[in-house]
Amino acid sequence: QGDIVVALYPYDGIHPDDLSFKKGEKMKVLEEHGEWWKAKSLLTKKEGFIPSNYVAKLN
């Protein structure tokens, strides 16, 4: 089961498979690959890669 993270900063995706998000948006982490994680937005239901240093895990 994936962790839920919250965006600390907004992110505008650079690549087509990036997931753009707004500050405060919550996402479910699907896979962790070093600095880039695959996640699904709980708001938009879209999936893509996010920079892990832009988010914090919720406990």
Rank of each mutant, 00 (worst) to 15 (best):
Q1N: 12
Q1I: 15
Q1L: 14
Q1A: 13
Q1P: 13
G2D: 11
G2N: 11
G2P: 09
D3G: 11
D3R: 13
D3Y: 15
D3I: 15
I4P: 02
V5C: 12
V5S: 02
V6I: 14
V6T: 06
A7T: 03
A7D: 00
L8W: 04
L8C: 11
L8A: 03
L8Y: 04
L8D: 02
Y9G: 05
Y9S: 06
Y9V: 07
Y9A: 08
P10W: 08
P10T: 14
P10E: 11
P10K: 12
Y11I: 02
Y11K: 03
Y11F: 13
G13C: 06
G13F: 02
G13R: 07
G13Q: 06
I14Y: 09
I14C: 14
I14A: 10
I14H: 10
H15Q: 09
H15T: 09
H15M: 08
H15K: 11
H15I: 05
P16L: 08
P16S: 09
P16N: 08
D17G: 15
D17V: 06
D18M: 12
D18H: 15
D18Y: 13
D18C: 13
D18V: 09
D18R: 10
D18F: 14
D18E: 15
L19N: 01
L19Q: 00
L19Y: 03
L19D: 01
L19F: 04
S20L: 04
S20G: 06
S20I: 06
S20N: 06
F21E: 00
F21G: 00
F21W: 02
F21D: 00
K22A: 10
K22W: 05
K22D: 08
K22M: 11
K22Y: 07
K22I: 13
K22E: 09
K23I: 09
K23M: 09
K23V: 11
G24Q: 03
G24H: 06
G24K: 03
G24C: 11
E25D: 07
E25I: 01
E25V: 02
E25Q: 04
E25T: 03
K26Y: 15
K26E: 07
K26T: 10
K26P: 07
M27L: 12
M27K: 00
M27V: 02
M27Q: 00
K28D: 04
K28A: 10
K28V: 15
K28R: 14
K28I: 15
V29L: 15
V29R: 02
V29Y: 03
V29D: 01
V29A: 03
V29H: 01
L30T: 06
L30D: 03
L30A: 03
L30H: 03
L30M: 09
L30K: 03
E31M: 09
E31G: 08
E31V: 08
E31Y: 09
E32P: 08
E32L: 14
E32C: 14
H33C: 14
H33D: 08
H33F: 12
H33V: 10
H33Y: 12
H33L: 11
H33M: 10
G34W: 04
G34N: 06
G34D: 06
E35G: 10
E35N: 13
E35F: 15
E35D: 12
W36I: 11
W36E: 04
W36L: 08
W37I: 13
W37H: 08
W37A: 06
W37K: 13
W37V: 09
W37C: 09
K38F: 15
K38A: 05
K38I: 11
K38T: 06
K38N: 05
A39K: 01
A39D: 00
A39C: 13
A39F: 01
K40F: 12
K40A: 09
S41A: 04
S41D: 02
S41G: 02
S41F: 01
L42F: 08
L42E: 05
L42A: 03
L42C: 14
L42S: 03
L43M: 10
L43T: 11
L43V: 11
L43E: 10
L43P: 02
L43H: 09
L43K: 10
L43F: 09
T44W: 03
T44F: 03
T44E: 03
T44R: 03
K45L: 15
K46P: 00
K46S: 07
K46R: 12
K46W: 05
E47V: 14
E47G: 04
E47I: 14
E47C: 12
G48N: 01
G48Y: 02
F49N: 11
I50R: 01
I50K: 00
I50Y: 01
P51I: 03
P51M: 05
P51A: 02
P51S: 04
P51V: 02
S52F: 09
S52M: 11
S52D: 04
N53A: 14
N53S: 15
N53R: 14
Y54V: 04
Y54K: 07
Y54F: 11
Y54H: 09
V55R: 00
V55A: 05
V55D: 00
V55P: 01
A56R: 14
A56C: 15
K57C: 09
K57T: 09
K57Y: 14
K57M: 09
L58V: 13
L58E: 08
N59D: 13
N59K: 11
